[in-house]
Design a protein around this nucleic acid. Structure first.
Lengths: 231, 231
DNA sequence: CGAACTTTTGAGCAACATCAAGCTTGGTGG
DNA sequence: CCACCAAGCTTGATGTTGCTCAAAAGTTCG
């Protein structure tokens, strides 16, 4: 793995796009590529943290281990996204665990490198702030979901959200980003409840479920459903 | 309200402490002081956003209005803290509403001013990143609370957290930052449940409740309690 | 083909919410 | 100084959502 590779990868990450060539070169010594297989634990809750990660390819799960062994999925990180920035800034131990959902390639960027880049390029700071803002908003929505929405509403909200980006006028098809157990956890549901809700939507003629593929037959009606107690 | 006042206030906010005098002067035209009375709505969910706020004195509640009129308190902002930075960065409408819990003085900083300061001072960027990191961590903990902890554990966790900063070896006394209805909402509980849990802790001899003042008689034992189903 | 995992289905239950009164508390005015 | 009112808080009785436990039916993959 030569230096060229790292810089090439960095250049293609949204976070680093605006850095100049010299700035990238200066960052490079702080970057460590890290390949891993599906299932590998990147870090545990409580581990110390000395940098942040960017996903080049693959998927990473961030989750909170619960005392009873069951864990709660907080977020699923996709390629181009980063994580652990906040922990790095605070110098606290990780509040979550990170595990690879697929064989993946990550870049680990040491804290020193990040601070250096921040000092050199205001655009980088803005990118990081934008990224954290996005994540913060996601968390606010999660909190909202968990606290004011019912199971039915959470599932509907998730489906509609996943559909975004494919504005097929009438119907839309999507594929779950992970297995149903994980999605259920993400929505703070048991797999049993998730299954039942999907079936309910299916019987109502709003969706068609085929394994991980889900067709939303009428997004508008779907959005309504669940808002109105049977009336 | 003269220019001097604004700059003096800014200088005392953690977020702006590191800005130089000329930088503060440059920021000043983008800053608008805003005084308001208890109960005043600063903005509603869905309003457009063109800057961030800093609390000089008073308290602000951020909450999600629920369809049925009940609202869910997301956060309570204290003096020295800021809010709406993330929304400003994303240029989205507010996902929450903001209401003054007391007569307050706020500073509203226009987006242009913030971006300017970011470009001029890396320290400012770092301060903002640190602030957002902190908020993000708070949200992660909230998500954790709502999803894996029981009502009892949430209350205990809240009490212990509020106690931080007063490391009185054995016991500690704290005053709730708002009325019990608000705290209950913050913990995603009904006021009834909150009341019952406090009473349970009281009967167990772990706390003493006197209106908004709560004495933690044995923080260590309190932390244990609720971890272990009666056994 | 069989082992391991994932998903579905069913029955019972627990935690917490809801609904409905009482009971304090604090501020206001007679 | 006390009566009064409204808001905040507590208490009890009842209800419902989604979880737990158990097991069967699909899937995946070597």
């Amino acid at each position: 793995m030569s230096q060229i590779d790292i810089i090439q990868h960095l250049r293609h990450q949204p976070l680093f796009q605006r850095l100049s060539d010299p700035q990238l070169a200066a960052l490079e010594p702080h970057v460590r590529p890290q390949r891993g297989d599906k299932g590998q634990l990147l870090f545990q809750r409580g581990d110390d943290c000395d940098g942040m990660y960017v996903v080049v390819y693959g998927k990473v799960k961030l989750a909170i281990p619960s005392p009873q062994g069951v864990e709660k999925v907080v977020e699923i990180i996709h390629p181009g996204q980063s994580f652990a920035e906040a922990v790095m800034f605070l110098g606290k131990p990780y509040p979550v665990l990170a595990q690879l959902l697929e064989d993946s390639l990550l870049l680990h960027i040491g804290a020193a490198g990040v601070f250096q880049a921040l000092g050199e390029d205001p655009g980088f700071a803005r990118n990081m702030l934008a990224g954290m803002s996005l994540r913060l908003h996601g968390m606010v929505r999660d909190v909202e979901r968990y606290s004011v929405e019912t199971a039915l509403q959470r599932v509907i909200g998730y489906l509609l959200q996943q559909m975004d980006g494919a504005p097929t006028g009438g119907k839309a098809v999507l594929t779950l980003e992970a297995n149903k157990n994980l999605i259920a956890s993400r929505l703070n549901l048991t797999p049993e409840t998730f299954s039942r809700v999907l079936q309910q939507l299916s019987k109502a003629g709003l969706v068609e479920v085929d394994g991980r593929d889900i067709a939303l037959l009428d997004p508008a009606a779907l959005a309504d459903y669940g808002m109105t107690p049977p009336a």
